[in-house]
């Protein structure tokens, strides 16, 4: 299991070496392109800032009102049954619907429990292997005006569900 942590340590340096090396082979002006790309990164973050302000305010108010704790406690008989962390239920469900709202909930978990807590690590891994299914499906199918989506939703839910279970299992095995 520890090989996963080795991957974590190596992947960023290896990406740098691999991509810059490949860039040299293909005669790319690596530093100029890096600067160009970094500018795009700036624009992306500035672009999501208003959304993040709105949703972090919403989630922050929900947290302060006590609603998130009430919800977790209300669901705990069910989540205990499948030994799923109750604090992560709201985030896991929101993950399927909206990327920015789930980011708000993710940050709330980091603030409340810390990113290195069991729950913080679980949601970090879970967020890496799931997707905003409902949003993505509507964008892609609407672009070609398809209304009957057959088994797309079922297939996507099964795969994301498998990811969530795997995330829980691996978090327990590595950090439990």
């Amino acid at each position: 299991m520890k090989f996963m942590l080795l991957i974590s340590e190596l992947i960023i340096p290896l990406s740098f070496v691999g991509i810059i090396g490949y860039g040299y082979i293909k005669k790319v002006n690596v530093y100029e392109e890096f600067i160009e790309g970094a500018k795009d990164g700036f624009k992306t973050v500035i672009g999501i800032m208003p959304t993040l302000i709105g949703l972090m305010v919403g989630v922050g108010m929900l947290r302060a009102s006590g609603f998130l704790d009430l919800l977790a406690n209300f669901l705990s008989p069910l989540t205990d049954l499948i030994s799923f962390p109750k604090e992560a239920v709201a985030l896991t469900l929101m993950r399927l619907v909206s990327s920015s709202a789930s980011t708000g909930l993710l940050i709330d978990i980091f603030k409340t429990y810390g990113p290195d807590s069991f729950i913080g690590r679980f949601v970090s891994i879970m967020m890496s292997c799931t997707e905003t299914i409902l949003y993505t499906m509507s964008v892609y199918f609407m672009s070609v005006k398809i209304t009957k989506t057959k088994y797309t939703l079922a297939g996507a839910l099964i795969s994301n569900f498998a990811g969530i279970i795997a995330a829980l299992w691996i978090t327990r095995a590595l950090f439990g």
Partner: peptide
């Protein structure tokens, strides 16, 4: 940003779980 001791430690597990879901 929220002061993780090792922010990137989740990359490897994230990669494995991504393989599982795919």
């Amino acid at each position: 940003q929220y002061n993780s001791v090792n922010p990137s430690e989740i990359i490897g597990p994230g990669l494995v779980t991504t393989l599982v879901s795919t």
